[in-house]
């Protein structure tokens, strides 16, 4: 969906590479240095998944429009 981003580890400040798309789908990303894990908690998973689904739908419709114009 988008490029890989980085957030500083709240524990050791090492940059943790993560992908927003995967994060919203429930993937966990761990700090390469101290192994702290950043993730979306289970309570919010449904909300995040729904948002990703809608986004993908919009992306597909934009792609279709682009192909039709060609």
């Amino acid at each position: 969906m988008i490029n890989e981003q980085k957030i500083p580890c709240p524990v050791c400040k090492t940059q943790i590479p993560f992908d927003v798309s995967l994060l919203l789908q429930g993937a966990k990303f761990s700090c390469p240095k101290c192994q702290s894990v950043v993730a979306i908690s289970n309570n919010s998973m449904t909300q995040a998944e729904e948002a990703v689904k809608q986004y993908e739908k919009l992306k597909q419709s934009s792609k279709k429009q682009k192909d039709t114009r060609r």
């Binding site: 524990v11 894990v37 950043v38 993730a39 979306i40 908690s41 309570n43 909300q47 729904e50 948002a51």
Partner: peptide, 23 residues
């Protein structure tokens, strides 16, 4: 998707998700 709309006061309130850090 990212806001809850309240038609009564015409405000968009941001949806908040919970994240966790395990260490």
């Amino acid at each position: 998707n990212c806001f809850n709309y309240n038609p009564e006061d015409n405000y968009f309130t941001p949806k908040v998700i919970e994240m966790s850090v395990t260490r």
